[in-house]
Design a protein around this nucleic acid. Structure first.
Lengths: 208, 208, 208, 208
DNA sequence: AATGAATGAGTCTTCATTCAT
DNA sequence: GATGAATGAAGACTCATTCAT
């Protein structure tokens, strides 16, 4: 008879993952330290190894867990409507994940941006569902001539996701000064679709 | 009287910085290793400490040196002409720096994207000249209504620089598959200015 | 009233000792691992400590139990007859113990041969009954001039037991190739008594 | 220009090997501890790793170094003369190695007797020259009918070497009480050749 | 009685840094 | 100035042991 119920066990696991996410986000993979992680989770060093077989695996689980939750929220986002609405819904879902799992998302973004050969593929793999959702919105818009046709939707999707990450980084780097998270979906959608010239410029500037 | 001419001394220093940039770019700050760096520079471990007082300082100098060279090239870029031309010239200058100093730039981008509190301000500080140059191009365009006015030029400049970095990351992450470096200036300028809808959509899709 | 019958309790104890012997034999004292031992016995780690107070004690009990069984079998060996018969019977009994309790015997031999100050005396102590039996065979033969008299029977007994161990080691080390266990009693007795020159050489070679 | 001459460097290496041999002999491979070894050599922990890449390698070098010296002395032993003289010379050479390199030899014997699959082959490999020398003495004697012919010389050589080890173990286990090292060559040769019955028994006891 | 989660001392190993030559 | 041997702090990981259930 196990001493801990499956539930209690997984609660401890969660606590460890949360602590690990915080430390990995703050210090990076190399900089983080198992002892500190365990203490932050209110446990002793050795306990970490009852749940994860190595620092590497712990790190992988942090990433996996981050993207699992993200995919879940993304998939609930209503993907219909106009192009703007579709993208805005996805961006909003992503921001919601960010708020809910900030440390996890920091790790995710940080790793995605560090292009380390070891983790880049893993990140991309877990990003795939979101990229596909974005690609779906874009694909439906291509037909109507509402999108530039010199770039395939997949590459545009990468740019969209990249811009999201960009604003997060800017948000964290400026200590929340700009942009405010609430503004990110609107910001990313309009800049992604209309660029710096904006929709206004579009209407006026082209008559001549 | 020094036993080495200032010239010889600074030549060794350069060699060390170059080796350090390569290693830091490949392995990150923690992962890089003084011994390997010195060997790659054709010197012995101890010699590093005749030129830099610590690993931290060496890292700082790598970043400083990366941005010094970048600023130099940026400042030579002709900043006049139309908005497109101005931005394209700056982006092209940046790509030139990238080619010339790839390891240094990798370190720079990687650190900028890792938003570590220790280095983020340093990076921003060294980015300032470039940001100002971009801001200059944009500022001159704001007046003529050729730019959206819901965002100040400084923030737009950050987005522009961020998008550049985004394409570099994508370039490195895809092992050079997409985008090719030569395409980056055009790509970043058009996406930055016109967004995913593109200039074509602008002419056609909006008249009605 | 105990919740386990004495019988059930001692059955579990046996299972633990057997598992421990296997692991200690394969991995040595330091290399063996309580968790593995308990699992091999079909129990959980903690249970080991309901039966033995520490790894050290468990190890001691393995040795004690090995020699207890050996002594028992040795004592049943018919000790009469000629010198050869007497020694052969003892050696055969020893080989029988070996077959029956191979892991235990491996631990025993391994420890005896490692002359660790902590265990050497314990081993010798448990070997005593067998040494005495061998000494008995030899003592009866000394009188008749059928044994060299430059060495006391006790030391000869040590040599006999050592040679037995030697053949076991050789057997294990060669993965059973040579000698086969069945041959050991004959082999050890003839080599011990007649040496490399053998009984044939004795008859012929000395006439000249 | 290296800070240490090759000589000084190899002197430190020797010191480390000597310390390691002592610790490995006393505690076994697992039981020994790099920190203790380095301190016993008058150095700090880290220094060990300037000379050996791991504990495993250090251990291997201890064994290699033990057998190198032994082979050297063995090869100088005059291998001619009668069978007795030949074997006695080899045994005497081995005892000389033992005296000179007691800790090393303890490791060697201990490992040889522990029949660990990892090290057993290594030991045998390094023992080969000695086994061959012994085999040489025996081979030359086989022809004249001065040796039993029911066992091939190679197996007899193994028994000879094993008996030597046996007496060493007995010597160490009895704290030097019996046998005295000086007596070992004579002891091992006569017991190996004539067995417990001895040469006297041969002349008298067998005629009838 | 059995369990297995938690613990933390102890181990190997790495590596920035110092400094005698 | 360059060198590389020596150092020891720090970190990942193992495992005997404890103890609540």
């Amino acid at each position: 008879m196990p001493r801990l119920t499956a539930n209690a066990r997984s609660e401890v696991r969660e606590r460890l993952l949360r602590a690990a996410a915080t430390r990995f986000a703050a210090d990076g993979f190399e900089g983080a330290n198992i002892n500190t992680i365990s203490l932050q989770a209110g446990l002793a060093k050795g306990t970490v190894y009852n749940y994860f077989s190595s620092k590497e695996e712990l790190f992988g689980e942090v990433i996996r867990s981050a993207s699992r939750r993200a995919v879940e929220l993304w998939s609930r986002a209503p993907a219909g409507g106009s192009l703007e609405e579709c993208l805005r819904a996805l961006a909003a879902a992503d921001v919601r994940v960010l708020r809910e799992q900030e440390p996890f998302m920091k790790v995710l973004v940080r790793e995605a941006m560090s292009f380390r050969p070891e983790t880049y593929p893993m990140i991309l793999e877990h990003l795939a569902p979101f990229l596909e959702a974005v690609g779906g919105c874009l694909g439906r818009a291509v037909g109507g001539g509402r999108l530039r046709d010199d770039l395939p939707p997949e590459e545009l999707a990468l740019v969209f996701v990249g811009m999201l990450a960009l604003f997060y980084i800017q948000h964290w780097g400026s200590d929340g000064a700009w942009p405010v998270l609430d503004d990110v979906p609107e910001l990313v959608v309009t800049l992604f679709l209309d660029g710096a010239r904006g929709p206004a410029a579009r209407a006026s500037g082209n008559v001549q």
